[in-house]
Write a protein that binds this DNA or RNA. Sequence first.
DNA 1: CATTGAGTCCCATATCCTGAGAAACTGGGG
DNA 2: CCCCAGTTTCTCAGGATATGGGACTCAATG
Lengths: 270, 270
Amino acid sequence: MRDAAPQGTYKVQALDRAFAVLDLLGESETPLGLAQVASSLQLHKSTAHRFLMVLERHHMVERTTNGKFRLGLRLFDFGNRAIEQYDLRERAQPHLRRLVAETEETAHLCVLEQARVIYIDKIEPARSVRMITRIGSSNPVHCTSVGKAILAFLPEERISDILRRTKFERFTQRTIATAEALRTEIEKTRRRGYAVDDEEYEEGLRCIAVPLLDAQRFPVGAVSVSGPSFRVTAQKLPSIANHLVQCVRGISADMGFTSASRNSRVAWPA
Amino acid sequence: MRDAAPQGTYKVQALDRAFAVLDLLGESETPLGLAQVASSLQLHKSTAHRFLMVLERHHMVERTTNGKFRLGLRLFDFGNRAIEQYDLRERAQPHLRRLVAETEETAHLCVLEQARVIYIDKIEPARSVRMITRIGSSNPVHCTSVGKAILAFLPEERISDILRRTKFERFTQRTIATAEALRTEIEKTRRRGYAVDDEEYEEGLRCIAVPLLDAQRFPVGAVSVSGPSFRVTAQKLPSIANHLVQCVRGISADMGFTSASRNSRVAWPA
DNA sequence: CATTGAGTCCCATATCCTGAGAAACTGGGG
DNA sequence: CCCCAGTTTCTCAGGATATGGGACTCAATG
């Protein structure tokens, strides 16, 4: 769905196909039968079958009792290992919880990957409309507060690279649809220190984000607070931003991102 | 590490290799360079390189700033999707939290996959020695309370199948090392309704588990409470077991596992 | 400056994957 | 009970596809 045509200089057909299978099963709400997989991906049934058997041997997919396929728990294992290397998530959690307690709105923790932001954690207030975000999923930068927050503190070179790769898809009336508009928005963000998404991604949803800077003032991620526009009003923005800044400061301290530049950045790449 | 030789009738070399790469990166504490990957897996430099490039294109691995490779966040995405299909985890969480509050020990939620148990959630008490379990990882059935709890309520056929496939690796002095011994242990578990792991997996760690039964009284998982032996004493076992039973009952109710047998089990395979 | 080791890239070859097709199931309905 | 349609499983020979030898670059080291 996201990147339908995985082209590139290096190719291993079998891998592209295998990931296409996993993608398909991941997108699907319900488990799929062999025939469905084969036809969806235009694979020969015997090819699809072989792939599924191999994937099953690796526990990347598993079969339900009625013989259909769905994603396997090995992926869950891998996912946890992957995220573990970012101990950011773990360290940030207590701070996020406090933030949620203070604001009573949903908080997200994100990092930038390539030209998109990935949600690596979400904390929801005790009772609230449940947000539809899925941890692990990614969004474009141009229509999210976290995207703009990170963008604003990136070196110019990275910014233009990312803007070049962004498609500026429209989601609502207010979605920022051009690179120029986003540039002025970034400027604004940089000045006031926090980014706002005012129903630019979803009707009725307002978000506000602050970047998380490492010792070199490089944005390693961002924290946001999101809620329905009628609760997250314009007047409340500064107050929420303040909570966000406190939260981010706490995380920075925990991560050892003190202003004194660290001697090595080996363990903490962008 | 776990299953070093992924043999089977169906084979796709490229996939086996790709997963070996992911495995390697997942096991490794630190990111690895191309040369390390190639030599660890006995792959040619150029082969390893191509795989890593393709995996990177799919975001299954990513490069740190110093050019080394580690697991990518796409895996995190997949992992979350995989676990989402088990809404068990989500539903169970509040109950687990309460259980942890009551017992002040760590709680785990597990399911059975093939012949091993997989930890799909872990809740830790506010302050406690941190347990080393990693969510998503799997353990054999014979040395864990959850394994025994599930085993005890499985149909005979499945039990013998699993016992046949278990290697009865020893971890401590007390590890149950034979199928016969495990059988009598299972019998005991069935009678008293809860399973105990008395330092059978790790020195000084005692666990107690209760199975989570669906409407057909089929064990879909298990919940356990674990803590240092000096706190989780023999006298406390019945009391903890009681909390566990309450917890599991709550989850069952939430999942709709009422005693009245449900009309369809399509959505809930083993 | 030579040397060593890591990473990137190209290309002819043989290996490994592909997909046609047939067999084995499954589960309705007549 | 039998047949049929749909699905899954299995086999095999041909050829597309991944393989790995090797050349090249770059950086670090002596």
